[in-house]
């Protein structure tokens, strides 16, 4: 795995308009290694974000005042759009409608602009005014601490698990690493890995570019890219015989039904949801129902209190017993 600075310079820079590209190329090493987002907004300053901070970027490097920063031009925006779509907007209609594109390396480019609506649905985004380059970083080993709590040694299966965290809390990173660990079959699993199916509706877990995972999700992993969760889970069950299904951001009615089906079919489900506390999750209609019926055997709470991906708590689903807590620091 290359360091993030190298990734940004090698993989992301070629998708930026030349003038913005030059600014990023010249950034000091310590700044570029921690960068999480590069934001381009039409006629506004170029801004870099990292966990817990931001910086305006001027032509010569980071600056402290917005008025000294490089102002992104319309030409930069147009050029960047051409580059991320490899000069072919027509080939990415669906992605643009969804509001993001994935570029090689698994990085996601979020888009905002003027939506053209037809029959209440977004037909296409026009006049793109914002780009958010999100650096995909794979943290191998992020799941090693959690996995032993999710594995039932007696029967050799993974518990149905729900991972809960506020945005940017490291849910996707954890899901990706769990997929890799389970699929490759590390030490604690005792034997070879298990077959993992990832239903990756937002192309975030595996970061697929043209269907090929750009991030390491393991040898025994099948990825259904950009597929609606409920439909994808059913498809997985029918034809790919997974032992573990991994998906993110559940919350719709049909997601719940698909999870029920998977659980009844004897397939372990690992899913994630936005939230910060048990009470908050229980109030959400679909998640509340799933928890009430004890579908999830393990609940993992993450936060970004000490950087993204801080493991706060692991709770046993049915009785709510804590198995791990950051405060006590053990079982």
């Amino acid at each position: 795995m290359h360091n993030p600075g190298y990734i940004i310079k090698k993989q992301i820079c070629q998708y930026l308009a030349p003038r913005v590209r030059m600014i990023i190329q010249k950034l000091p090493y310590d700044l570029i290694t921690k960068t999480e987002e590069i934001r381009l907004r039409h006629s506004r300053p170029l801004i870099l974000y990292w966990a817990g901070g931001e910086s305006y970027l001027g032509v010569t490097g980071p600056v402290s005042m917005a008025k000294e920063a490089y102002i992104v031009t319309g030409e930069d925006m147009e050029n960047t759009l051409e580059l991320i779509s490899s000069y072919s907007l027509y080939a990415y209609e669906e992605e643009i409608r969804q509001g993001y594109l994935t570029i090689p390396g698994g990085h996601r480019v979020g888009l905002a602009g003027r939506a053209v609506v037809e029959n209440g649905k977004i037909k296409i985004l026009r006049d793109i005014t914002s780009f958010n380059f999100r650096v995909a970083r794979q943290i191998k080993g992020a799941g090693e601490k959690v996995l032993p709590f999710l594995y039932d040694r007696r029967v050799g299966r993974i518990y149905h698990t729900l991972i809960i965290s506020p945005p940017q809390g490291g849910k996707t990173t954890l899901l990706r690493d769990l997929a890799r660990l389970i699929s490759e079959g590390v030490g604690i699993l005792g034997k070879g890995g298990q077959k993992v199916g990832i239903v990756d509706e937002r192309s975030e877990i595996a970061g697929c570019f043209q269907g090929v995972p750009q991030l390491d999700v393991g040898l025994r992993t099948d990825v259904l890219d950009a597929c609606p969760k409920a439909e994808g889970m059913m498809l997985m069950l029918r034809s790919l015989s997974p032992q573990v299904i991994i998906t993110d951001e559940i919350g719709r009615d049909d997601d719940a039904r698909a999870i029920e089906d998977a659980v009844h079919a004897g397939v372990s489900v690992i899913a994630s949801a936005h939230g910060s506390s048990m009470d908050e999750i229980c109030q959400r209609p679909v998640l509340g129902m799933l928890l009430e019926n004890n579908y999830f055997e393990r609940l993992v709470f993450l936060s970004n209190s000490r950087g993204p991906g801080t493991l706060e708590m692991i709770v046993e689903g049915e009785r709510g017993l804590p198995l791990y807590s950051a405060r006590s620091g053990g079982e």
Binding site: S85, Y87, L89, Y90
Partner: peptide
């Protein structure tokens, strides 16, 4: 024109 619009626009 090249690549600047969706399919129907092209």
């Amino acid at each position: 024109i090249w690549g600047k619009s969706d399919k129907s626009g092209q």
